[in-house]
Design a binder for these strands. Structure first.
Length: 234
DNA sequence: CTCCCGATAT
DNA sequence: ATATCAGGAG
C-alpha cells in the first residue's frame, strides 16, 4: 500500500514545500495586474532579477496600458533591451497594451480565455497573473524550472508544458496549484538548479527519485535509465 | 521544428 | 566557450 502511491508522494512533497517556502510568492516586482502582466511577458528566458531592474523605469514612463500602447517602439525596446528578445517583447507589450485598451477597457482580464488572446501570453503567463494577482487556482505555472523539476521528481514524464500541467493537476489539490508553482520555482532556483543541483542540501532529497547523488555534483542526474515509457492510448 | 537575444554562472 | 534564465509565436 505504501509502495509507490504517486498521490501520497505528491502530498509528502507538498508538505515539505509548505514548510520550506511558507511564503512562496511571485518574485516579479509589481503593484497592479498590468505591471504583473508586463513583467511576466518580459520574464521569458530571463532572470526575474533582470526583469526587476528594467521595470521601474518602464512603469514610471508608461504606467497604464494606454501609455504603453502609445509608446514608441524604439523607446520600449531601449528600456527592455537587457531582458533579451527585446524586439519581440516590445511588439508583444505594445500590441497587448493596445488590445487591453480596445477590448478590455484598459484593464487586465481575469479570465484565462481572455488572457491567452493577448500576444505574448500563453498559459504560463496567464497562470502567473491569475494565480498571483487574482487569487485563482486556474492552472499550474509550468516554466523552465517546473518543467525540469517535474521530470526530476518523477511527477511527469512529458515534455510538453501543457501535458506536464495536466499531470501536476492530477497529483495536487486545486487549492495548492498557485502555491505549487511558486514553491517549485523557488526550489529550482535554490537547490534543484539546472546546471549544478545542490542535492545534499535539498529538502526534497528523501522524496526524490534521484538518490545517491554526490555532493553538489549533478552528473549522476543525467544517467540512470527510465522505466519503459507508456504509450498513449489510441 | 526554428527563431527571437542579452546577461550571467560555470 | 557554453548552458541557462518565471516562453511564445510562426
Amino acid at each position: 500500500m505504501k509502495k509507490e502511491d504517486p498521490g501520497k508522494r505528491a502530498a509528502a512533497i507538498l508538505e515539505v514545500l509548505e514548510r520550506e517556502f511558507p511564503r512562496a510568492d511571485c518574485a516579479l516586482v509589481h503593484e497592479d495586474p498590468f505591471q504583473l502582466l508586463v513583467a511576466t511577458i518580459l520574464s521569458a528566458q530571463c532572470t526575474d532579477a533582470k526583469v526587476n531592474q528594467v521595470t521601474p523605469e518602464l512603469f514610471r514612463k508608461f504606467p497604464t496600458p494606454r501609455d504603453l500602447a502609445r509608446a514608441s517602439r524604439e523607446e520600449v525596446e531601449a528600456l527592455i533591451r537587457p531582458t533579451g528578445f527585446f524586439s519581440q517583447k516590445a511588439r508583444y507589450l505594445r500590441e497587448a497594451a493596445a488590445l487591453l485598451v480596445e477590448r478590455f477597457q484598459g484593464r487586465v482580464p481575469s479570465r484565462m480565455e481572455d488572457l491567452v488572446t493577448l500576444p505574448g501570453v500563453a498559459r504560463k503567463t496567464a497562470n502567473v497573473v491569475l494565480g498571483t494577482w487574482f487569487g485563482k487556482n486556474e492552472g499550474i505555472v509550468v516554466d523552465t524550472h517546473v518543467k525540469r523539476l517535474a521530470g526530476r521528481l518523477g511527477l511527469s514524464r512529458e515534455k510538453d508544458p501543457g501535458r506536464i500541467e495536466r499531470d501536476l493537476q492530477a497529483l495536487f489539490p486545486r487549492e495548492t496549484w498557485t502555491f505549487l508553482g511558486h514553491a517549485l520555482i523557488l526550489l529550482g532556483r535554490k537547490y534543484c538548479k539546472a546546471r549544478k543541483p545542490s542535492c545534499p542540501e535539498c529538502p526534497l532529497r528523501e522524496l526524490c527519485p534521484q538518490l545517491g547523488v554526490e555532493k553538489g555534483d549533478g552528473k549522476s542526474l543525467k544517467s540512470g535509465k527510465q522505466p519503459p515509457r507508456k504509450r498513449r492510448k489510441p
